[in-house]
């Protein structure tokens, strides 16, 4: 084959290389797309939304209260009138489980608020300032972390009566520690990234670097940690109430309901079944969502 200079024509240089065809997606849009593909995580999300709606609005549509007793109707199995049956005092279990959801979700909200405010601020400052401050702050965390939550609650019982306050205080001491550690770790890594150095060379102040560069880039880890801390807090409350250190009757937390149900396990197993199911499903839903969020928000997992 003969090749002559004429057989070649130079490719005209156009702007094609500077074109970007993919639609512009922000980080959160991108993460949402990935989350939507994860069926289990979406199932978890739907369950949580449903639970929230049921807990907030459910009791409004019922004409009985969670503490209304009707001894003639005691220990009835599930029926069209009482969906989950009734307990030994004739209280409607369905309504009581819904009220339990309120308490559980309140615990979840408190835990996540603590995580987000105290945990992020504490870890962020420790990681950002570094040096001796960091070492001191993290030693405090290590000490607090070493004491079991159960011990805090028992000690608080000496001062206060058993109840929600106890649990909130115990959560307040214990539930931001994990977040503080994670955020500090993230900040330590991101602090050395070149874009933070670049921000410093253009004269960005400390707060600007913290709020515009460090925190937004730790957001993925923060949200995942938060989502996984919520079920942990909910379960802790259920556990404490179950062993009688938390919410007390006639208040209806899932732990209390399970504890009451276990007394009549042989004769009326449904009294344990429904609160236990509620606990399990909620835990699973939060964990599914947390795992899904981790996959969706972690850029290293990107396919």
């Amino acid at each position: 084959m003969q090749l002559t200079p004429d057989s070649f024509t130079p490719v005209t240089r156009d702007n094609a290389e500077q074109e970007i065809l993919r639609p512009s997606l922000t980080y959160w849009q991108d993460a949402w797309q990935r989350l939507k593909r994860n069926k289990l995580a979406m199932l978890g999300l739907y369950i949580i939304v449903f639970l929230l709606l049921a807990a907030v609005f459910g009791p409004l549509f019922s004409n009985t209260s969670y503490s209304d007793q009707n001894l003639l109707q005691a220990n009835r199995p599930p029926s069209s009138e009482h969906w989950f049956g009734t307990d030994n005092l004739g209280r409607d279990l369905f309504i009581r489980v819904l009220y339990g959801a309120r308490i559980s979700l309140a615990i979840g909200i408190v835990a996540s608020l603590l995580n987000f405010t105290v945990g992020v601020a504490y870890g962020g400052i420790a990681g950002f300032v570094g040096g001796r401050t960091d070492r001191f702050m993290m030693n405090v965390v290590d000490v607090l972390y070493g004491v079991p939550v159960l011990l805090y609650v028992i000690l608080l019982m000496v001062v206060l009566k058993p109840g929600l306050t106890n649990i909130f205080i115990a959560l307040g001491i214990a539930y931001w520690l994990q977040m503080a550690r994670i955020v500090r770790g993230q900040i330590l890594v991101i602090k050395e990234q070149e874009y933070v150095l670049a921000a410093r060379t253009i004269g960005a102040g400390k707060w600007r670097i913290l709020l515009r560069h460090l925190i937004p880039n730790s957001m993925g880890a923060i949200i995942v940690t938060m989502t996984l801390a919520i079920p942990d807090a909910i379960f802790t409350e259920a556990f404490l109430s179950f062993i009688g250190l938390g919410v007390a009757a006639p208040m209806a937390s899932w732990g209390v309901l399970a504890s009451e149900g276990i007394n009549s396990l042989r004769s009326y197993p449904f009294q344990l079944l429904f609160p236990a199911l509620a606990i399990s499903i909620t835990m699973l839903a939060f964990n599914f969502l947390g795992d899904g969020l981790r996959d969706a928000l972690d850029p290293r997992m990107r396919r």
Binding site: E194, Y195, L197, A198, R212, N217
Partner: peptide, 13 residues
């Protein structure tokens, strides 16, 4: 200053 790694020197957010 211009940095070495163009993948690390721009804030992804």
């Amino acid at each position: 200053m211009i940095f070495q790694d163009p993948y690390a020197s721009l804030n992804p957010r």
